[in-house]
Amino acid sequence: MVDVLAFGEHAGGKIAPITADLIAAARGVGGRVAVVLMGGDLTGLEAQTAPLGVDKVYTVQHPLLAGESVDMLVSALEQVCRRVQPRVLLLGKTAIGRDVGPCVAFRLGVGAAQDSVAVEAGGQTGRIVATRPVYGGTAMAKVTFGSSNPQVVIMRPGAVERGSVPGAGEGVAEEAEAIEVELDESIRKVRHVETVRKESERMRLDGASVVVSGGRGLRGPEPFAMLEELAGLLGGAVGASRAACDAGWVDHSYQIGLTGATIRPDLYVTVGISGASQHMAGCSGAKRIVAINKDADANIFKEASFGVVGDWSKVLPSFMEAVRDLVRS
């Protein structure tokens, strides 16, 4: 019997960080926790789950699962759910999980709680309660499930403190089981043609310990050169609000927020960003937020630890000069 089944993601022969998030969340729910790994070739992956603390690892290896086709993954996961009958199915809100989770739920006729930041076993009913930001983060909802299983929860990456859940991260003695699934080419409805990576030298946003972001208040692309320099001084990465991306000042891969990147830096410096809830949804995990904004009433000052109310074109140059001196000394 398995109570909670986590859909483990992996890339390049390594377990992806989201998988550890999911296992930590699963441990918080309680009961027997299993992870399912799917792919064309899972060699060496199973062993990497041991330190994460699961009771069981299911492996589903099939040539048609190479290449991350959502259609194939949905069919395979549906078959696994019918076999294993978990009470709870956890996925990550990643490019894959946010589609696979709801599709499996629809196929099984059950509900899915998308983009959840907390999950717990509910009171008397024993049903799962998921907490999700809604209205772009302006409101929070606690939702629960009807009577059918699995209860599908799609977790926002980084939402669960991995260390904070008892049992997570401890190597629990685990069993392994390979599950055979039936797949054929006719299942693939969406065909992959090519992947286009925008070559960039710039530091990745996820994982950066310092992020410097600009918004509509910068009024154009030029000031981003200053932000690049500042990020360079601080060993950090540059991000942006959606308004700055939509305006074409920087590429959309800079976007931080609900529909952009999620960051958890130690220091997040925002310049000319108002702090809309949809933006804050991507940076609420930042330890300290610094705001430079000329509007004292801007929402960003409700979330920032340090701020300057002023015009960035005056504040930023002297800030950078002082930073330059400080990092040199």
Binding site: A113, V134, T138, M140, A141, T144, G146, M280
Partner: peptide, 13 residues
């Protein structure tokens, strides 16, 4: 409903 709303609130930040 397969997903039921138990509570909706405005977090204070």
């Amino acid at each position: 409903r397969r997903i039921r709303i138990m509570d909706l609130f405005l977090p204070v930040r």
